[in-house]
Amino acid sequence: MIALAVACALFSLGLYAVLSRRDIIGVLVGVEIMLGAGSVLLASLGAASGASSGSVQAIGVMVLLLAAAEAAVGLSLLLSLYRTSGRSRVDELSEVSG
């Protein structure tokens, strides 16, 4: 039950970062915290319910891969955006062009 409370608190903190940060890097950090909270919740639930350890670890590895890919794409977007427009604040980005 402690793990659940901690995971929910971490998810709330990550969501608060996504909502309140105005910089893309801050939003990315918030998403990483939310993904970490989800992984902790998954592992704790797996341990508490006696699920197969292979399944829990396999899904944990998948979440890890997803988070790494998300960070790589998000940071490349940040770099590309900063090079082309010199901006990195989410509230300054109101247009989408192809």
């Binding site: 402690i2 709330s12 608060y16 909502l19 508490a48």
Partner: peptide, 23 residues
């Protein structure tokens, strides 16, 4: 933002607490 984040966290806790047993 703080209220939304706290509300989502509380909702998650209340909906998942039955899935957790003892430590």
């Amino acid at each position: 933002s703080a209220a939304v984040a706290a509300g989502v966290g509380a909702m998650l806790f209340l909906s998942l607490r039955t899935a957790f047993g003892d430590t």
